[in-house]
Write a protein that binds this DNA or RNA. Sequence first.
DNA 1: TATTGTTATACTCTATAACTATA
DNA 2: TATAGTTATAGAGTATAACAATA
Lengths: 158, 158
Amino acid sequence: MATRDSQDDASAGQVSDAGLRAFLGYTIKRTDNVILSNIAAVLKPLDLRVVTFSALVLVGDNPGLRQSQLADALGIERPNLVVIVDELEGRGLIRRDRVPTDRRAYALTVTAVGKSLCEAASAAVRTREDALLDGISAAERKQIEGLMRRIESTGGRR
Amino acid sequence: MATRDSQDDASAGQVSDAGLRAFLGYTIKRTDNVILSNIAAVLKPLDLRVVTFSALVLVGDNPGLRQSQLADALGIERPNLVVIVDELEGRGLIRRDRVPTDRRAYALTVTAVGKSLCEAASAAVRTREDALLDGISAAERKQIEGLMRRIESTGGRR
DNA sequence: TATTGTTATACTCTATAACTATA
DNA sequence: TATAGTTATAGAGTATAACAATA
């Protein structure tokens, strides 16, 4: 006999998520939440959010990128990107330059200030990720990446 | 010499996300998005969202669960859970019963209708996940789960 | 005094239609 | 006619404060 009255309920004690753990998506989502909130916490002191940081990295890696391409890469709608680019430009982190061959479009580039902030942010994120991955070998990490990318490509269009 | 004028930009051609791929969180987030949108698509015909499905599974596994415990398990705030429970109760999928020993609280349970819908939904989600994991062995899947849970527990409180 | 569920509300994110200026 | 960026706006999702009933 248990000490507490053995009702078959969860009114006291731990809540079981065993049923949800049967779905891999649940475990992946929980892990994703943990990683994202950690990254967000690391970026906050630099006045960056996950989106603005991602935008900075993408523009840095793709100089001359247009806003519609950036929106597409970030997986957000064009209208919603405008305020993000406004913010980054207003802080002097990126530049909007008119494209001579197509005066409708803007070519986005990272400024020197933006580049150094991006590098500092990247280092901070890398450090935090390494801490989260403590005890996980480089080989295991490679394996996660490979498996994730296989699932992603199987899932097709989203 | 390339055929197109070789500007060092991305105004034409593919956008590189190599810089973001350096962060494991990016790859995991993309995979998570794919899985979640696939699950959402599978649940839609059953008039379930990911939250309502998760709530159904949790209440089913923890009969007598209270709303505050459910909100906690789902990672949402108590006020936001109210409309979810309203919806599930309104559709006759769960029941709210007063707890005799604490008349402030409700004991949540899944009805017979809710149980059969939950089982159908679970089967559909499982089938879709299996399709996404096509080509990934049971051992690899176990490995993903183990590694994810290690990362999750290292990340601590969120 | 503290807690359960609730209401009201605000803030962020996301999604769509429609405008402008160019092409 | 179509496209790039923009504006306005509406809808989710999420967060906090405060209330009534109960402990």
